[in-house]
Amino acid sequence: MRLDIEAVSVTLGGRGVLDEVSLSVPSGGFTALVGPNGSGKSTLLRAVYRARRPDAGVVRIDGRDLWAMPAARAARDVGVLMQEQHTGFEFTVAESVALGRTAHLGMFDRFTRADQDAVAEALDRTGLSAFAGRRVGELSGGERQRVLLARALAGRPRLLVLDEPTNHLDIRHQLDILELVRDLGVTVLAALHGLDLAAAYADAVAVLRAGRLVAHGPPARVLTPAVIGEVYGVDASVHDDAGRIRFGLRPRCVCPDRRCHWSCRQRRDRSVADAR
């Protein structure tokens, strides 16, 4: 499923969060969305999974306007893994994953064999079959993240939207989740914090900064010292380690400067104090 984001703008509380962002993910492509905190990554994803209607611009899946179709119709094609939300009630793993079928079922539809199969397959793919009857609250952070992924997969989506899917996970689980997602073969748009992960798993990287798309293309072309340095305010070096891209990153301080980073200001003040 092809995703086209066309000149999408979002304003929150009078402040522009996204400014005419245009971005396409070809069918089966894996695009990583990177950028500093507050650059608009989550807001862009929310416009794709219909949690926030863009104030301007269009989101299309396979050419059709996503926001013009019924919510359930859109949700049947778009699977979402977002950061975990707290609830006071305890669903079991299977119940929680079965909620991924919600958009496929009408008000009086029974949970059919096909629905059961989709849930079982999602549990199997995420290695959770043995956990089906456990309560989600009893699981570890990594297992819970797999439950959320399984819920997204249970809907058999053709486009997968992931918001920091590797948050709170140890290194092994980060790799496992991204391997799994890549091997599904569906179209993926994922906000990622780790540049290493973006370079290793995505076939395209889109860089957001202050609500604007500043670079977009294959990882090796986009994730250059110049782009990373400019966007994140760091001194970056990029190494080719037998085909894998590695990054060396250090905070960049060019104080005194109007845009001197708070950590640099602190460091400068400390060194001044030490000198006394």
Binding site: A51, A75, V80, M82, T102
Partner: peptide
């Protein structure tokens, strides 16, 4: 008749929207 969607609602606004819920 709305019990299934109430389940999805319990997950929160965002998750509900992602599951196709108004």
């Amino acid at each position: 008749a709305r019990a299934r969607r109430l389940n999805a609602l319990v997950l929160g606004e965002e998750a509900g929207a992602a599951l196709g819920l108004n």
